[in-house]
Design a protein around this nucleic acid. Structure first.
Lengths: 199, 199
DNA sequence: ATATCATGTAAGTTAGCACTTACATTCTAC
DNA sequence: GTAGAATGTAAGTGCTAACTTACATGATAT
C-alpha cells in the first residue's frame, strides 16, 4: 500500500501528516484516526510508533522546528550595498518563515496549551535572527554608513514589518482589491527602512 | 450568588467568561461545563441563553470584535508635528489591540476553523485602519512634507512594526534579557519610519 | 522454510463532552 | 403574597475520540 513517496518511512509519513493536520485543525481538532487515514496507515500503527497523541505532537514540534537559515547568508552579504543586503535578508526571511508556515500556524494556535515547549523554539529562532541582523547593523554603524540607532530595536522594526506582511497575507489570507506583489512590497519596505537608518 | 461585578447580567457573565476561556484554551478546549462553573452559573443556564456552544462562540466573536478606535484620533492629530502624530497613532494602535488581546488570540487559533467569520472581522478592522493611515500619508505628501512612496504600503510597514512588537511581547511573551520598554521602542520605531518617509 | 518484525483488520473499552429532562428553588413585579 | 420568569440540582443520553486487545498477513533475513 505504499503511497506515491518512494522510500518514506512509516514514521515520517505519520509525522508529516500530523504536522499538516495539526496546523489545519489544531491539536484537539486533529483525530488520530484521521491522521492515520490520511497517512495511509492503520490507526494502531500510529500508536505503535508513538505512545500517545501527546508524544506525537512533541515529536512533530521537535522535528519541524526551524533551523535558522539566515546565518549562511551573512558572508555573501558582506560585499553588497546596504539596500541590496537588506533586500536579500528580507527575501530569505520570508522564504524561511513561508516554508515553515505550518509550524507557525501550530505555534500560534497551541501556544497557550504548550507554553514552555513553544516559547523555547520560538525564542531560539527569534533570538538567533535578531542577533545576526543587529550585529550587521552595528558593523555598518562602525563603518559610519548608518546613523546611530539601537541596533536590536532596528532589527525588530525591520523583521517586524515583514513578519506582519507574512502574517497578514499567508496566515490571515488578506486579499486586497489592489494587489501589490511581494517584490514591490519588499522594495518599498526596504526603501523606507534604508531612508530611516542610512546616513 | 452575585459576583463582585454589581449589575452584570447572566448573559454578559457567560460571554465574558467564554471570551477568556476560548482565548486561553481554544474553542474545543473550553468545555461548556467549565465556562459555566467559571461564570458562577449552572451549565444548563448557559444553554438557556445560547442554543449551542457554536452560537455562543459566534456571539463572543460578534460582541468583542473591535470597534476601530482610531478614527476619532485623526482630527486631534491634524495640528501635530509628523513625529508626534505617528507616536500618538502608534500608542493608540497598541492600546487598541492590547485591549482586544483575547480576541486576537482567538482569531489566531481559530482562523482555520472559522475562516469566513474571522476573516470578515479581521479585514474590517485592518482595512479601516490602513485606510485612515494611508489617507493621512497622502495628505502629508500633498503638502510636500513627505517623500513620495506608496501610502498603503507605508501604512502596512508602520503598523506592521507595531503589530509584530505586540505579537512578540504580548502573545508570545518574549522576554529579553535586555529589557527595552514600550515607550523607548515606540520612539525608535517612529524615528526610523520618519527618517524613511519625511523629506 | 521458518522465525521475526512491521503492519493490517476488527472489535471493544473508557472517558469526556455537548446537550437534555424533570423537578425544585429563588427573585421580581404587581 | 402570589404568579411567572430565571436559575439551580442532579441525573442521564448519545456520541466521539484516544487508546487497547487479539489475531491475521506479508516481507525479510538466515
Amino acid at each position: 500500500m505504499g503511497r506515491s513517496n518512494g522510500t518514506q518511512s512509516t514514521r515520517d509519513k505519520i509525522l508529516e501528516t500530523a504536522l499538516k493536520l495539526f496546523s489545519q485543525k489544531g491539536y484537539l481538532g486533529a483525530a488520530t484516526k484521521e491522521i492515520a487515514k490520511e497517512a495511509g496507515i492503520a490507526e494502531i500503527t500510529l500508536f505503535r510508533h508513538f505512545p500517545s497523541k501527546e508524544k506525537l505532537f512533541e515529536e512533530v514540534i521537535n522535528t519541524y522546528s526551524f533551523l535558522p537559515a539566515l546565518k549562511e547568508l551573512m558572508p555573501e552579504i558582506a560585499g553588497m550595498s546596504y539596500e541590496k543586503a537588506l533586500t536579500e535578508i528580507a527575501k530569505r526571511f520570508l522564504e524561511t518563515i513561508s516554508s515553515r508556515k505550518d509550524m507557525i500556524q501550530i505555534m500560534h494556535s497551541e501556544i497557550q496549551r504548550y507554553p514552555e515547549k513553544i516559547h523555547k523554539i520560538y525564542h531560539a529562532f527569534i533570538d538567533e535572527i535578531f542577533k545576526i541582523l543587529a550585529s550587521y547593523f552595528k558593523e555598518m554603524q562602525k563603518r559610519k554608513i548608518l546613523k546611530s540607532f539601537d541596533a536590536e530595536l532596528g532589527a525588530k522594526a525591520f523583521l517586524g514589518m515583514f513578519f506582519s506582511y507574512f502574517n497578514l497575507h499567508e496566515i490571515m489570507m488578506y486579499k486586497k482589491y489592489r494587489h501589490v506583489d511581494k517584490d514591490a512590497t519588499i522594495k518599498e519596505f526596504v526603501k523606507i527602512f534604508v531612508g530611516g537608518t542610512k546616513k
